[in-house]
Simulated assay, not measured.
Amino acid sequence: MRILIVEDHTDLLEAMQKMLQDEFTIETATNGEEGLYLAMQNIYDVILLDVMLPDLDGFSILKKLRAANMMVPILFVTAKDALDDRVKGLEMGGDDYLVKPFQGPELIARIRALLRRSGNLTIDHTLCYRGITLSGKEQPIFVDGNEVKLTITQYELLEYLIHNSGKIVTKEQIYDRVWGYDSETTVAIVEVYIHHLRKKLEPFSYHKDIQNVRGIGYILKEPKEN
């Protein structure tokens, strides 16, 4: 799962990365304009957003994201602890508000709660689709109870498809989510990795669930019986 941290205090930013890097893929921005640009360009599971930022404050970033119909969960992480600020952030469309200073376990718990609320995580922190269970990119996945090893990229691809199971995702969306806008590869790499992932799932017949949507992308859903 991918998280964007928008925080201008370097020491705190590094500390937050260390708290989260074992469980999540982290990207960072140190000012508001950069944070907004990344949030608009990429697909994140959660955004951790400071309020007081250079160039563009966190409330303005949130307003622009919601105006663009981007419903990614937003967790404000800020020193502004006044009741009016907390209420403002939530009423503008923020999902949670964590006041500095905080401890790592609380930050992780808040993120997990947002992921569960958005349907991206179960109570035991696993991600499931039919007989497929994901427990973190450092852990093996299980398919119908059998351990299957994936590369990090294959894992992130499968994770993204499961997050969006039943929905059509374009090749461009997959590319942005898994490889990132600054990757030196091209969107054609998506087809290659879809092929590899299908091969890994073929012994269990789940390769048929990754269905082509001609001219658009893919959808992960149980195939209809003939």
Rank of each mutant, 00 (worst) to 15 (best):
Y155P: 11
R117P: 00
N226E: 15
V213C: 08
D84K: 07
T122C: 00
A188M: 08
I26V: 11
N69P: 02
T170S: 15
A109R: 09
G217K: 10
R117E: 11
K80I: 11
R86T: 07
N226P: 15
Q139S: 13
R2K: 15
E191H: 12
K88G: 02
Q139W: 03
N164F: 09
L83R: 01
K18T: 09
K18H: 11
K171R: 13
M19S: 11
T186L: 06
A109V: 00
E138T: 15
I194Y: 05
V148F: 08
F204N: 05
L127H: 05
L48T: 14
E184P: 01
N69S: 14
M92R: 06
R130H: 15
V148E: 12
P105I: 05
L38W: 09
V87K: 12
T25Y: 13
L4M: 06
Y97H: 07
T30D: 15
V213H: 13
L220S: 06
R177D: 03
E159H: 14
L36H: 12
G94D: 02
L83H: 00
V178N: 02
L62I: 02
L220Q: 04
L83C: 00
E156W: 08
T126A: 08
F142K: 12
I189M: 11
Y218M: 13
D96W: 04
V148H: 11
S205Q: 08
D11H: 09
T10S: 13
L62E: 03
K200F: 05
V169K: 07
V187T: 14
K221M: 06
G136S: 09
M71E: 15
I43Y: 13
I123V: 15
R130W: 09
P73W: 03
I152R: 15
I168P: 00
Y97V: 10
G215L: 14
E156L: 13
Q211V: 10
V99S: 11
R177W: 01
E202V: 04
L90C: 08
A15C: 07
V213E: 13
L13M: 14
G89P: 01
G119W: 06
G166Q: 02
Y181A: 15
S118N: 11
P54N: 07
L127A: 02
L115A: 04
L38C: 11
R116K: 13
M71Q: 15
L115Y: 06
I47Y: 04
L121A: 06
I123Q: 14
